[in-house]
Design a protein around this nucleic acid. Structure first.
Lengths: 340, 340
DNA sequence: TTGTAGGCGTTATCAC
DNA sequence: GTGATAACGCCTACAA
């Protein structure tokens, strides 16, 4: 594999001149530049990036640590990060940690030693950042709060807005008996969505009912079970807002089993806008989780830090909102015209 | 950031001794080794992998080129590759090309220049390998045939077996009128699955019917449309085998619309075992696409090549089979006991 | 067991 | 504009 010395020899110049010619920007005569570039091409020269990185102390690579790329949602983060990084001239080194703290520490170790220019940590519930004092490179966290460090920036999905918007959407369809099947109550996202739910009710002067709020896990069995409880109440809800699409699928199962028609007898709303929402029958109305955008914003922020030394003075905290994706599981309630 | 010279100074030894002590395996006195390691720890020393890679001409990294990680199926390839690579001490550098030949060439360029130890190309329909004569590193292709080069190995899903097994499964449920809605006929996978379908019929002495075989694209609209044609035939099929789960969803829509009960009036079988198959109602019987395994096998093969110089003499060609995933859309037909 | 010295391939700093 | 030369941090013959 040819190096710049091989080229230098053939071109009768020094390696330094070759380097300049190939870098394409220094003071060098057009004649030599073209001659040298031509020789480089003929030799099939390819720059050794390892040597370059060693010399320049920069790799044009960022690391992305996430739990599991094969998860549909994480995949969007990965795409968002990579698309934006690539646009800024960076490549992305990926590391799945699969719930293992050890693996997260190993990833940070590796990235540090490889002299990556920065790192994005997505969705991990662990605290490797705190446990990794060597973390000197620019860092952006996705969907993970809790660091007070000014130098560690955050990009989050706006779960409060999601809860608020979903509930408002149902309220605008004239529903007032709106139940909420939330995820585990100790999750940050759950708490935020619940606040959004309550605030939307309050802003529409609807009294919240204790028996209409349930906490389960994120999966369909939980949705099925809790929906049954809700639908068997004497004064049952006319709409159920589920904090994940999988929960919503369970809710649909329960409704069908009780002979309720969706959306005529019961409106159902999901959260996440997973592929299953589009393929459910009827198609599931839901709130999109803007993870592609979150990934992009995180990468954008990181690249800005690396390139411009921006955001040096204060911590970045971005919230990215999702949207209501209208499909077939929600329907307006006819209200009396109110003349009496 | 401390380097081995800083440690050497403090330990009153040479840098070479430090290097040996930290490498942990050379002939070195236990006393110095421990002393040096202790000092390294105190200094918070971290080896510079860029320098090491430059020196050793090896990076312990492999590249993975695929179309789009955020696609559910590609995600499994990525996970399989990474899990297996990690097990062998390698990290994975990911590059999404999104149908762009330019990007694929750029990826190979970058990987080559970064001195990665090997590369896996997944699912890409382009021919960057042929157009990239510089590709000197070990290469494994996933779901892409066509290179005669002995040094370029292949791992493929066994689409013939998938078509054969799906059809056989339906035949064993006593179906004989089995239609097949395939993907585009110019796809390699389509051709293989069709062969499997025909051979299974032949092995069970069932005459294939021309009107029972349709080609569409991979999506649900196509499945819906073609299923309607099939189900409105005078002598309609009792089972429809769809070459993708999305097609199968369209088939289910068509059946429901015609008032046919699934699986009582019509059995439906998908392909891919996407998440939507599990969440469809009724739950969709399908053939799994073993992409996680394919990713693992590809990484395993690549690591063996890198580490042991194995597979040097002949091209590796692996086929990985999926399985029938039994769910709720298929049902046996009652047959007459045949006494007459 | 340890030290010396050279080299991996590039870029940057000086001179000229 | 161009050429020496050093430096990035590490590893490894070879010598001692």
């Amino acid at each position: 594999m040819a190096n710049i010395y091989d080229i230098a020899k053939l071109a009768n110049v020094s390696a330094a001149t070759v380097s300049r010619a190939l870098a394409n920007n220094e003071k060098i005569s057009a004649a030599s530049r073209e001659r040298i570039q031509k020789i480089a091409e003929e030799l099939g020269y390819r720059p050794n990036l390892v040597a370059r990185n060693l010399r320049q102390k920069s790799s044009l690579m960022i690391g992305l640590i996430l739990d599991d790329v094969s998860d549909e949602l994480s995949g969007f983060i990965a795409r968002g990060v990579e698309d934006e990084a690539r646009k800024n001239g960076f490549s992305v080194l990926l590391w799945n940690i699969q719930h293992e703290l050890e693996s997260e520490v190993a990833a940070l170790d590796f990235f540090t030693n490889l002299k990556l220019d920065g790192v994005i940590l997505a969705d991990t519930t662990l605290n490797a950042v705190e446990e990794f004092p060597h973390l000197k490179m620019p860092t952006v966290l996705i969907n993970r709060t809790g660091s007070d460090e000014e130098s560690i920036h955050n990009v989050l999905t706006d779960d409060y807005a999601g809860g608020y918007d979903a509930t408002t959407y149902l309220l605008n369809l004239n529903h007032t008996k709106i139940a909420f099947i939330n995820g585990p109550f100790d999750w940050h996202a759950s708490a935020k969505r619940l606040n959004g739910y309550y605030d939307a009710l309050k802003d529409h002067h609807v009294e919240p009912r204790e028996e209409f709020v349930k906490h389960g896990d994120w999966y369909e069995e939980s949705g099925y079970k809790l929906a049954k409880e809700l639908l068997l109440l004497e004064d049952r809800p006319t709409a159920i807002f589920a904090s994940s699409d999988m929960i919503a699928i369970g809710v649909m199962d329960a409704a069908r089993e009780l002979g309720l028609s969706i959306p005529d007898d019961i409106s159902i709303m999901g959260y996440d806008n997973r592929i299953i929402a589009k393929y459910a029958r009827p198609r599931l109305t839901t709130i999109s989780l803007p993870l592609y955008e979150v990934g992009m914003m995180a990468a954008k922020t990181l690249c800005e830090i690396i390139q411009n030394q921006a955001h040096k003075d204060k911590q970045v905290n971005l919230l990215v909102k999702g949207n209501v994706i209208e499909r077939e599981t929600t329907k307006a309630i006819q209200v009396d015209s109110g003349i009496d």
